[in-house]
Nucleic acid binder design. Structure first.
Lengths: 249, 249
DNA sequence: CGACGACTTTGATCTGCGTCAAGGCCGCTG
DNA sequence: CAGCGGCCTTGACGCAGATCAAAGTCGTCG
């Protein structure tokens, strides 16, 4: 989804930390690269652990190395809405704001590459390319949020499920286990409840709609309930989105 | 809502174009200011006119001078969801992307201050403060979008209406007509249908809920239906949000 | 001023999804 | 291996909000 123009940031080191792919600029000089390298540190979380609570001080920014994290907002009476889904290489945290406006939670075991905020901000001042890249990433996220708003406000339960499966299958290649004869098999990393929080539904409705899609042969479930084999074309017909199913920007 | 840190961009000229308030940095030098001044031009639209169609090429970025514009997404069968509401001084357009991903429509008579995209991007390269400020604005919008997602996914019709009225009353001081004895009187610039598109409801439900709030004395309508006198405290109790009603970041 | 059109209100009815409840599957632990 | 806890499925029922329909308000233009 994220587009890279020829002058954008590049993948510097395949084996390394993804922050290099996302926040390090090809045009930065060696000193800047070294500064970034020295600043970074790693943190691990277990599935289910909370990374930051809404309202808490957040003194770092970070990039997901492996695993999945969610951003959620909770109302006083416990109603929850997921507002962000972070897959490997996604960025969390907001330069220039101290307080986290939502909970960040690890839904699987999670490793993040962190930078203390102050030094990171100082570096941004000196390295305009980083700010530029961050702007690009934030705009991508904003577009995704708006797509999500259409889903929440106007789609039916069935369309919501189909959209979610399409989005995940499209977005995270790392979840694709096999690709034989055009079929995409992937491990769905969310529980029914997490899907419900993503879609603004209850977990029962999610379950029912998934069963319905399975009975109709649009998707298939394998063994442990989380492995899904969608009939990709039929699935994207169900999303309610424009036919081609892709973003053509 | 937008916070200005001491080093942020400042209001340079009360009578002038709001792009100066938003995108011009106090620390920029005279040459940069002059460049910006020379680049800008104005466009006017009538209420109801479309500024850009989704999928069209958008070769400028702009700042709203006066009036109100909306960003909306439309599904093939006509279901519509508003995904952005632009009030004076808000910014539209995405440096680095050619195609508009949603319709931009003037809901009132509208004046925008525009910059052709290419020169604006070139200036961003040379003037890091502008990119920095733009990042800050985009992050604010992202936060607003996430708040909006909670509204769409989890709030009841009544809570949605109360939230919308609070948001508008809080956000746009220019709509406040009088403030006597703590009462805020403001002109609501949206039709029932536009509110419905904002909230993910039908216009009938919007109308019914507004009638209900009025009968209960939470809000009042004056003469032409668009002038509303909310009992602000009671209104914010209805939003479902945390009690204080404000963002305390 | 009358008629038209844009917008709003209100009522009657329908339905998709939420709620409540029971039971199934599976892995873990004693 | 029995019992337990987490997660998922399925059924029965109810309700918030959608849909369909009709009538009211108000500005405007001949």
């Amino acid at each position: 989804m994220a587009q890279h123009d020829p002058h954008s940031f590049v993948h510097m080191n395949c084996g390394g930390c993804p922050i290099r792919h996302r926040a390090v600029c090809a045009r930065c000089d060696a000193t800047e690269l070294t500064t970034l390298e020295q600043m970074k540190y790693y943190r691990s979380y277990q599935a289910g652990q909370t990374v930051v609570w809404s309202g808490d001080r957040m003194d770092f920014v970070a990039s997901v190395v492996s695993g999945i994290a969610t951003l959620t907002q909770t109302m006083e009476d416990g109603r929850r809405q997921m507002v962000g889904l972070l897959l490997p290489s996604d960025f969390v945290g907001r330069p220039g704001r101290a307080i986290a406006p939502y909970d960040v939670t690890a839904t699987t075991d999670l490793v993040m590459c962190c930078f203390r905020k102050k030094p990171f901000e100082d570096m941004m001042e000196k390295t305009p390319h980083v700010a530029h890249r961050l702007l690009e990433m934030t705009l991508d996220e904003l577009d995704a949020a708006r797509e999500w708003m259409l889903l929440l406000g106007r789609k039916t339960a069935r369309e919501k499920i189909a959209s979610l499966l399409s989005i995940i299958a499209r977005r995270d290649a790392s979840l694709r286990l096999e690709q034989t004869s055009g079929q995409i098999v992937f491990d769905l990393p969310l529980t029914r409840e997490e899907m419900a929080d993503y879609l603004g539904l209850t977990l029962e409705t999610v379950s029912r709609q998934i069963s319905a899609l399975r009975k109709e042969g649009v998707i298939g479930l394998e063994g442990k309930r989380h492995v899904i084999v969608p009939d990709f074309d039929r699935l994207s017909e169900e999303t309610g989105d424009d036919s081609d199913g892709g973003f053509l920007n």
